[in-house]
Design a protein around this nucleic acid. Sequence first.
DNA 1: AGATCGCCCTGCTTGC
DNA 2: TGCAAGCAGGGCGATC
Length: 286
Amino acid sequence: MPELPEVEVVRRGLERWVAHRTVAEAEVLHPRAVRRHVAGADDFAHRLKGHRIGVPSRRGKYLWLPLEDTDQSILAHLGMSGQLLVQPHTAPDEKHLRVRVRFTDALDTELRFVDQRTFGGLSLHDNTPDGLPDVIAHIARDPLDEFFDDEAFHRALRRKRSTIKRALLDQSLISGVGNIYADEALWRARVHYERPTATFTRPRTLSLLGHVRDVMNSALAVGGTSFDSLYVNVNGESGYFDRSLDAYGREGLPCRRCGTTIRRRPWMNRSSYYCPACQRPPRITP
DNA sequence: AGATCGCCCTGCTTGC
DNA sequence: TGCAAGCAGGGCGATC
């Protein structure tokens, strides 16, 4: 499941292998992969043709490739299973290949969007004056963004009548955090996933943000080592970092801090993993 | 109007 | 053994 660290690894790969190349031709093999491009697959392909790719950017789990000499960008979201791969022309088509982009230069590689579950996709959008695609203007800055405002995040938490994990997954409050890194950061911060956001003190918020950043930076460091010149990204899963997870996916295993058995609880049609001793449930108020 | 729910999608795993 | 249910889950539109 690509979250911020995995998407950043992809962005870096694109910067190295795709930036500054000119599109010769784009081919959409599955219309659902470009469903956010309202004008349709043919329009998407047509508009890419002949344009040079700029330096890729990222916010949260979204990344985009500016089209030079236009005021537009190719927006990409990997969803659950999406991959952006740089492959030799001769590599056989992947089973779930959705979009192919060929370039005008003599390099023997092309860009491929491969996505089994098709939750992800590519689309073309106008940029806002800030240079980000207009359709993601509502996505908050992510915790690795130098302009992320910790104080504003704390105030937003205090205003909300919600619980902390919902807030961490709310991409309009803080972006880039998914189910895995939410559980990991909460475990590190010793906070239960259902703690009401209104109970957060400033030190607790800042501590949690610190753990969010720590776990993402650790994952990013490991993701970098799995980089391969053929593959722009990792493998679409958690990369090598899954070996370092302390909570997510560890139901029935001992907490690495206190030895108590890690629990899994159904939550919002997914799962929350936590240590019942380190992460005490909030007191129920009548 | 903010919070919550349901749907989209496929392949692997689990259980009867 | 075979089939079906369960599970993975981000984001967005609909609903309360």
